[in-house]
Amino acid sequence: MLLILLGVLILHLIVLILLIVSTAASAWSVNGEWSKELWYNCQTNSKGYHCGPSSNEDWIQAVQALMILSLLFCFFSLIAFVYQLFKLVKGGRFFFTAIFQILASLFVMCAAIIYTVRPENDSNAQFGYAYVLAWVAFPLCLISGLIYIVLRKKE
C-alpha cells in the first residue's frame, strides 16, 4: 500500500511540475525569429533578444486564466491528498482530491484547445515545447484524478 501511495504522490508531483513549466515557459508558439508564450512575446534581431508583453486579446487571457486555475487546482489537490491521507477514515476514498485533480485536467485541456484554435497571423509558426507539455500534463492529470477515485485508505 505504501508503494501505491508513493507512486500516486510521485505522479501528482510530476503533473504539478509539468503544469508549472508549461505555464511559465517561453515557447508555446515558435518561429525562427520569435517565440510566443502566455506572458511575453520575444523576438531575436540584430540588436539581440527583446521581449514585450503578450497581446491583450480575449483568447490569450482565457488561456492564461485556465492555466493558472489548473495549477491552483492541482496544488490544492496535492494539499487535500496529504490532509486526507492523515485524516480520512479507514476505507474512505479520496473523492475531494480526485475532484480537484480532474478539474485541473479539464482546465489544462481547455487552455490547450483554446491555444490550438487561436487566430494566427504567421503560417510558419510551430507549437513549442510548453504547448506539448500542457498536452502531456492533461492525460497524466486525468489519470491521477481517476486513480484517486479508485484509491481507498487502508491501515
Score class of each variant (00 low, 15 high):
Glu57Gln: 12
Thr44Phe: 09
Gly32Asn: 14
Ser22Asn: 13
His50Asp: 10
Cys51Glu: 06
Ala137Gln: 02
Leu3Tyr: 10
Leu5Ile: 06
Val132Trp: 01
Glu33Ile: 13
Ala130Phe: 05
Leu3Ala: 04
Val63His: 00
Leu38Pro: 00
Ala111Glu: 00
Lys153Asp: 00
Lys154Cys: 02
Gln64Phe: 07
Ala130Cys: 03
Leu133Val: 08
Thr97Tyr: 12
Val8Trp: 07
Ala111Cys: 10
Leu140Trp: 01
Val108Leu: 06
Ser29Cys: 11
Phe86Cys: 11
Leu5His: 09
Ser55Leu: 07
Ser144Leu: 02
Phe76Thr: 11
Ser26Phe: 15
Val30Phe: 05
Gln84Trp: 09
Cys74Gln: 15
Leu9Lys: 09
Arg118Val: 09
Leu151Trp: 01
Trp28Phe: 15
Ala80Asp: 05
Phe107His: 08
Trp59Thr: 14
Ile99Met: 10
His12Trp: 13
Tyr40Met: 09
Ser77Glu: 07
Leu11Gln: 10
Gly92Asn: 10
Ile60Ser: 02
Glu57Leu: 08
Thr44Pro: 00
Ile114His: 02
Ala130Lys: 02
Leu151Phe: 01
Val82Leu: 15
Ser77His: 05
Leu66Met: 13
Thr44Val: 14
Asn31Lys: 10
Ile147Pro: 00
Gly128Glu: 03
Asn121Trp: 10
Val150Tyr: 13
Tyr131Gly: 01
Val82Thr: 11
Leu9Ile: 03
Ala24Arg: 14
Leu133Trp: 04
Ile17Thr: 15
His12Met: 14
Val8Cys: 10
Met109Thr: 12
Gln64Cys: 05
Leu6Ala: 04
Glu37Val: 05
His12Gly: 11
Val136Trp: 00
Asp122Ala: 09
Leu142His: 05
Thr97Gly: 03
Phe86Ile: 15
Leu106Cys: 13
Phe75Gln: 03
Leu9Met: 10
Ala104Thr: 12
Leu3Trp: 07
Val8Tyr: 09
Gln101Asn: 12
Glu120Met: 06
Ala134Phe: 02
Asp122Gly: 04
Cys141Lys: 00
Ile60Glu: 07
Glu120Thr: 13
Asp58Phe: 08
Leu3Cys: 11
Ile149Leu: 00
Tyr148Gly: 01
Trp135Ile: 03
Leu3Thr: 11
Leu133Asp: 03
Ala137Arg: 00
Pro53Val: 09
Cys51Thr: 06
Phe76Ala: 12
Leu19Thr: 03
Ala25Arg: 12
Phe86Ala: 12
Thr116Tyr: 15
Phe96Val: 13
Ile79Cys: 11
Phe81Val: 06
Ala112Gln: 01
Lys154Asp: 01
Ile147Asn: 03
Leu106Tyr: 05
Leu85Ser: 10
Ser54Pro: 04
Ser105Leu: 08
Tyr49Ile: 09
Ser54Asn: 14
Ser144Ala: 08
Ser70Tyr: 07
Cys74Arg: 06
Val117Met: 03
Pro119Glu: 04
Leu11Lys: 04
Pro139Asp: 07
Val150Ile: 13
Leu78His: 05
Ala125Met: 12
Ala24Cys: 12
Ser26Glu: 15
Gly92Glu: 13
Trp135Cys: 01
Ile4Gln: 09
